[in-house]
Simulated assay, not measured.
Amino acid sequence: MAKSRKLESLLAQLEQIRLNPTTSEAKLILCQLLTSKQPMAIAQAATLIAESEQYDLIPSLVAAFDWAMTKPSERDPVCTAKLKLADALYRLDYNNEDLFLRGIRHVQRTSVWGGSDDKAAPLRSVCALGLVRMNYPDVMSELADLLADPEPDARIGAARAIAYTGNLLGVPLLRLRIKIGDSALVLSDCFLALLHLSPTQFSIDLVRSFLTIQPQTEHRENTDLAEAAALAFGESRLPQAFDILQTWWHSIRIPELRQMGLTAIALVRNDEAVSFLLFLIQSGDLVVAKNSIKALSIYREDQVLWQRVREQIEQRGEPSLLSMAD
């Protein structure tokens, strides 16, 4: 109970300085929070320091990280503080490789029902970004290890960090991870990273192969991988993306994939993709028209484009569609 009251008091102090965190008094409070031994308070202080770009408090962040890493399971059981401290240092352009190497290699298993859970996967991902940003010479070796990490969150972080490098040495790593296989959640980021790093026909063909529904594989796994590939094409915004997705959408019959395919087309964000979806609103069957409107809803803040959506809906005159224009 005493710990709970102490944490509440610390967080209340944080709220008092949130609107103006760079005064001398605020800096003193932030430093006190970083030495409070309360992971949640440390994490929130670190976030505020990064948001307010207080480079002069970097030494205090480093000291707090060292404290949390000394007895990591005891002092910061679920890596709340370590994660936010590493993230703050990454965002403040901290360039000491030793800290990020400690983080990218840190594993912290916590007992859970039926086994144990590694709480440090997000920390490893953030530290990967820190090493990439500072151009650490052996970063690709570290990212290769992270791409083979047992935890999916860490593998996702590795794929994103590889894309961030802009280094073509990451292409074979991504291709190997894709070829070996993984969950759709992980491969989604691998697909996007590959298309970002190497938007060649070789890469496009590999990602496009996952759009094909293989009858011998489990249906749910099939559709998840196809969805991941389609969304990666959409988010890539490659010149070929619309043609690939339009051709694929016309070929599929699985309802959930057809709906998601329209979302992927909307993500391409070019005139061809928008015109295609507007055409479907006016000419497609009712389900297709509704799904096209949902897909284009990402443009609601674009008044000119959304007005075009409204016009197509009004021209069609279908009562069940009219309410979707608001």
Rank of each mutant, 00 (worst) to 15 (best):
D182P: 06
D182M: 04
S183W: 05
A184D: 12
A184P: 04
V186W: 10
L187C: 04
C190R: 02
C190G: 04
L192I: 02
A193D: 08
L194R: 04
L194M: 08
L195V: 10
L195D: 08
H196W: 11
H196G: 13
L197N: 02
L197P: 07
S198R: 03
P199G: 05
T200E: 15
Q201K: 05
F202L: 09
I204Y: 00
L206C: 06
L206S: 08
L206K: 09
V207H: 13
V207E: 14
R208Q: 14
R208H: 07
R208L: 08
S209F: 07
S209I: 01
L211R: 08
T212L: 02
T212D: 06
I213Q: 10
I213L: 15
I213K: 10
Q214F: 11
P215D: 00
P215M: 10
Q216R: 15
Q216M: 09
Q216F: 10
Q216N: 11
Q216S: 13
T217W: 13
E218T: 09
H219C: 01
R220T: 13
R220M: 02
R220W: 05
R220S: 10
R220K: 13
E221V: 09
E221S: 11
N222M: 07
N222K: 04
T223F: 05
D224W: 04
A226H: 08
E227R: 13
A228S: 15
A228Q: 12
A229G: 10
A232F: 06
F233K: 04
F233R: 07
E235M: 12
S236V: 03
S236Y: 05
L238C: 10
L238Y: 11
L238Q: 08
P239V: 07
Q240E: 14
Q240L: 09
A241L: 02
I244L: 08
I244V: 14
L245T: 03
Q246F: 07
Q246K: 14
W248E: 00
W248Y: 03
W249C: 02
W249R: 03
H250G: 01
S251N: 10
R253L: 05
I254A: 14
I254E: 15
I254T: 15
I254V: 14
E256M: 12
E256Q: 13
E256S: 11
M260G: 00
G261A: 11
T263E: 01
I265P: 01
I265D: 06
A266T: 01
A266M: 03
L267G: 00
L267C: 01
V268R: 02
V268Q: 00
R269A: 14
N270A: 12
D271L: 02
A273L: 06
V274M: 00
S275T: 15
F276G: 01
L277Y: 06
L277P: 05
L278C: 08
L278A: 06
L278F: 07
F279E: 15
L280N: 14
I281F: 06
Q282G: 03
S283W: 01
G284Q: 12
L286D: 12
L286K: 14
L286Q: 15
V287N: 12
V287C: 13
V287W: 11
A289Y: 09
